[in-house]
Design a protein around this nucleic acid. Structure first.
Lengths: 137, 137
DNA sequence: TTGCGTGCAAAGGTTTTGCATGGCA
DNA sequence: TGCCATGCAAAACCTTTGCACGCAA
C-alpha cells in the first residue's frame, strides 16, 4: 500500500486529517468541503474529489455508493484493522460499518472462486443492508 | 402486487414490453430511451423515469444503484422466475457486471440475517473482484 | 368530463474536466 | 527546474420538476 504517494500539500493534509477524525462514520464531499471552509482552510471541490480518488485508489479510504441521488460517501480505513481478511456490512440507515469476520462467510469467496471463476476482493466489497439495531426501530 | 395500476398508455406498454424482453439482464434509462427512439416510438426521458418509479413501487421492476456514476439499472421481475434475490459481481478490471443467481449464495443472506442480525439489501450489494476472463489475461 | 400521463425545457445536484497558476521535492 | 496539485468555471451527467396539453377510462 503506497500511502505516502503524491505530494504533501496543505489541502491533502487537511483532508486526511478530517477523514481520520471521522473514521468512525461515513462522510461526503459536501461535508468535507463545509468543514474545511468553516475551519478557515477551504479546499476546492475538484481537489477534494481528486484527492479522494487517489486515497481510494491506494486503499486509504473506502468509497460507498448508495443512491446515485445522495452522492458517494467516504470513510477512512485504519491500517491496524486488517480489512482484507474479512467482509464488511454497511448499514444504510445509521451508516455504521460492521467488520464481519466469520468462517462461514469466508467460504463464499472460495465458492465463487471455484464455481464461478470470480476472485473476490474483500477489501472493496461491502454488503449493504439494515443492521440489528436499526431493524428494531 | 398492483401490477395494473395506472393508465394503459402507449408509452407504458412500449416500456414494459422492452423491460420484459430484457428481463434477463439489467438495463438503464439511456438504453431504454435509445431503443424506443430507434423503434420509432420515442418516449420522453421524464416519462421513462416516472413510469419506472411506479413499476419499482409496485414491485414489477427492481432498481439497482451501484455506482452513482453509471446511473441506476433496472430489471423486470417475473413472478416465480427471476424474482429470487440474486447478487452481482463487478469486475474491477473490465468493468463487467455479472448477474449471479446461485442458491449457494442465497444462503449468505439467510446466514447473515440469522447469525448476525443484519438484513442484506441485495439491490445495493455488489461483490468486487476479478472475473474469469480477466484473470486469464 | 376528470384527472392522470406526457413532453419539453429548465432546474438540481454531484462529479469531471480544461486550463492557467501555484507549490512540493 | 520539473511536475504534480490546485482552483475556478464550465461542462457533463443523471434525475427531478413545472407547466401546458393530451388522452385513458
Amino acid at each position: 500500500m503506497k500511502r505516502d504517494s503524491g505530494y504533501n500539500t496543505r489541502q491533502r493534509e487537511k483532508l486526511i486529517s478530517f477523514l481520520i477524525k471521522n473514521k468512525n462514520k461515513h462522510t461526503n464531499v459536501q461535508e468535507i468541503s463545509a468543514y474545511l471552509s468553516a475551519e478557515g482552510s477551504p479546499v476546492g471541490t475538484a481537489t477534494i474529489y481528486r484527492q479522494l480518488d487517489k486515497l481510494v485508489e491506494n486503499g486509504t479510504v473506502r468509497k460507498y455508493s448508495f443512491d446515485g441521488k445522495t452522492g458517494a460517501c467516504y470513510q477512512y480505513i485504519d491500517d491496524g484493522e486488517n480489512c482484507r481478511e474479512h467482509f464488511h456490512l454497511k448499514c444504510l440507515s445509521c451508516g455504521r460499518l460492521i467488520h464481519l469476520d466469520c468462517s462461514h462467510l469466508r467460504e463464499i469467496s472460495q465458492h465463487i472462486s471455484e464455481e464461478h471463476g470470480f476472485e473476490i476482493d474483500s477489501s472493496q466489497t461491502v454488503f449493504y443492508g439494515i443492521c440489528k439495531d436499526c431493524k428494531i426501530n
